[in-house]
Amino acid sequence: MADALLGPAEIRELAARLGVTPTKKLGQNFLHDPNTIRRIVAAAGLRPDDVALEVGPGLGSLTLGLVTAVAHVHAVEIDPRLAEALPSTVTSANLTVHRADAMRVRAAEFEPAPTMLVANLPYNVAVPVVLTLLAELPTLRGGLVMVQKEVADRLTAGPGSKVYGVPSVKLAWYADARPAGKVPPAVFWPMPNVDSGLVAFTRHTPPAGIDRSAVFAVVDAAFAQRRKTLRAALAGWAGGADRAEKALLAAGISPQARGESLTVEQFTAIAAGAALSGVGGKLSASGSQPEEMDS
């Protein structure tokens, strides 16, 4: 199987041999269309010297496409049966399989260091996985991920869009993102009831002058009550509406504006100005997250 991409018959035969039934809990929808795999590998903009990081390789469909395109592939798989079986399906010397949770991996675990994230991500954890890996792996220069189409729209939305929110701003902190195409349900087993979307991103230098966690606290507060003006939405974060207004004016932003109209640079300016004037705080002890963090 190492010399050819997997089609529908091979996927089902392999799953049956391993006793694997796709589970919704792990977000398992296995790719079985060679043309889609070739399309993903081509759209990722990979270089021969790249080190690809794949999250959720499953039965190895995309992995087979990646190992011939890059110098090395790190495949992170949480399902122990799939992790154990992958080297038998993808018999390549440039593959390292990590039986791990992608939300808990650390940079020191990968040698050589990953340079590109290319993955068909489980729908239920797509946003936190992308943001966590960009934070943990500074060697990533970019990537291409397949996610639920609705999530792809959120990740690539700009200020003023109805779907612009927490994922949009936080990804923009790390990278320039763009939509890279739609993927129909028919190329998966089992077939999801929604379309998928490809998101391509290229890392850039993040805004300077303030810690990321301080900026993300402002973003979370602004979108937790996205229908309110920033003066009202940031009141809890700032310690009062008047203090929120002070921070906004210092950043050159109207207190009557809403979070959906601000760029990541403007959120950074709010956090930076607040830090200088002693305004601002952290998320509540409950740790609750706004709806837009859901993947």
Score class of each variant (00 low, 15 high):
120 N>H: 14
31 L>W: 02
94 N>I: 00
31 L>R: 09
222 A>T: 00
91 T>I: 11
214 A>N: 07
273 G>L: 08
278 G>D: 03
204 H>Y: 06
184 P>R: 06
103 M>L: 15
17 R>L: 15
244 A>R: 03
265 E>R: 10
254 S>W: 08
4 A>D: 05
113 A>S: 13
39 R>N: 15
262 L>K: 01
192 P>S: 07
159 P>Y: 14
17 R>S: 15
167 P>E: 09
107 A>E: 12
219 V>H: 01
167 P>D: 08
187 V>Y: 01
232 A>Y: 04
133 L>G: 07
249 L>K: 11
10 E>C: 02
193 N>F: 10
123 Y>D: 02
285 A>V: 15
101 D>L: 03
5 L>T: 07
273 G>R: 04
211 D>F: 05
30 F>P: 05
232 A>P: 00
58 G>C: 09
45 G>C: 07
15 A>P: 12
65 G>S: 12
291 E>T: 13
41 V>D: 08
166 V>H: 01
271 A>N: 03
243 R>F: 00
15 A>V: 05
128 P>E: 07
102 A>K: 06
153 D>N: 01
285 A>E: 15
43 A>V: 09
30 F>V: 06
75 A>K: 04
273 G>I: 11
172 A>Q: 04
251 A>V: 02
11 I>Y: 07
245 E>A: 05
76 V>G: 02
156 T>V: 12
274 A>E: 05
187 V>W: 01
82 L>F: 02
130 V>H: 03
154 R>T: 06
225 Q>K: 15
280 G>K: 04
13 E>N: 11
7 G>V: 07
280 G>D: 01
289 Q>V: 13
145 V>G: 11
226 R>M: 00
81 R>G: 10
282 K>P: 02
190 P>N: 14
242 D>H: 04
159 P>H: 14
13 E>V: 03
3 D>P: 11
65 G>E: 06
149 K>G: 14
68 T>I: 07
113 A>C: 05
84 E>R: 06
176 D>N: 07
145 V>I: 15
147 V>A: 03
59 L>G: 00
189 W>P: 01
202 T>D: 07
116 M>R: 12
42 A>E: 08
173 W>A: 09
277 S>E: 14
140 L>V: 13
164 Y>M: 13
115 T>V: 11
133 L>W: 03
94 N>V: 04
138 P>E: 10
117 L>M: 13
237 W>L: 00
123 Y>Q: 06
55 V>Q: 03
106 R>W: 09
145 V>Q: 06
3 D>Y: 08
22 P>V: 04
160 G>K: 09
210 I>A: 13
108 A>N: 10
266 Q>L: 03
162 K>C: 12
236 G>Y: 02
165 G>D: 09
100 A>S: 12
157 A>V: 10
200 A>H: 05
100 A>R: 14
7 G>I: 08
110 F>A: 05
55 V>M: 05
228 K>H: 00
178 R>N: 11
22 P>Y: 12
179 P>C: 08
272 A>Y: 02
208 A>I: 09
